[in-house]
Design a binder for these strands. Structure first.
Lengths: 134, 134
DNA sequence: GGAAATCCGACCTATTGAGTCCTGTTTAAG
DNA sequence: CTTAAACAGGACTCAATAGGTCGGATTTCC
């Protein structure tokens, strides 16, 4: 509980890989999966999501692959999580944007005090970029 | 993902309830469950765990119930989580004490940088007590 | 045209979270 | 001394999700 998903971990590992070695080079999902022993299909889907969010750029075809679309210091960990999970990182479902689905929303007495934890987490993950995990 | 479990939420709600109204009084699982519309059986088990951890004290029998075993400002949210989940709060399994079961432990390149997030979370939850969520 | 790559939806499955059930034991009160 | 109200706690069910897989389409270089 309270854990980042494997998808997010894999995404961060891949982004770090690209940030570390980049010089106009593209990296294939296959080579990244091999290097870190990650499940290829899953990693591929993650990279596709990051592409749609414009965090990486992809080139298709036989010499294709992925590269960072932004400088490492511009890529917030927070944004990576939000992209992969389709949700911002949050410590309880009541902090989601949009509809509140929590079964005890009305009777809940801890939402406000835990907001402090939520905001702290948010700013921490916003201020942390790929540059810092190289 | 990254969310506190319902169990922890329920536990915190119950502890806050006791902290808010306490004057030597005991509270039954039933009345707390009713007041906040929580599942009774589940709440009961959570309170039993908190009892074993000496966060609350129980008195059995017909006029029995639960009361805080410590002053609200002494009960760390961190300790509550650890008690209910049998694990300290952590953002990745590799930060667990004891054996590392992560499938990519050796190849993982983000454990060290994410340690900053882990430590920040830990200190935040250690410094937050029931007193602060009243 | 074929190989190597991204793209992407559909599917599977094991684990976990959330909740329930049942049977104890304890104890105050009548 | 019996009953009812409470805690104690293991076993179980159910549903949702995480994690992973598959199949096929499209793109592009040689």
């Amino acid at each position: 509980m309270l854990q980042l998903s494997k998808k997010v971990e894999y995404g961060l590992i891949a982004l770090r890989h690209m940030a570390l070695k980049q010089r106009g080079q593209v990296f294939t999902a296959k080579e990244i999966a091999l290097e870190y022993d990650l499940p290829y299909d899953l990693l591929a889907k993650i990279l596709q999501k990051l592409t749609r969010a414009n965090i990486v750029v992809s080139t298709q075809g036989v010499r294709g692959g992925y590269a960072l679309a932004q400088r490492p210091e511009e890529i917030q960990v927070s944004h990576v999580i939000r992209t992969i999970e389709d949700e911002k990182p949050m410590i309880a479902e009541c902090y989601a944007e949009g509809t509140d689905t929590c079964s005890i929303f009305d009777a809940c007495t801890i939402r406000k005090p835990l907001g402090k934890v939520q905001r702290n987490l948010e700013s921490l993950l916003q201020n942390m970029t790929i540059q810092e995990i190289i």
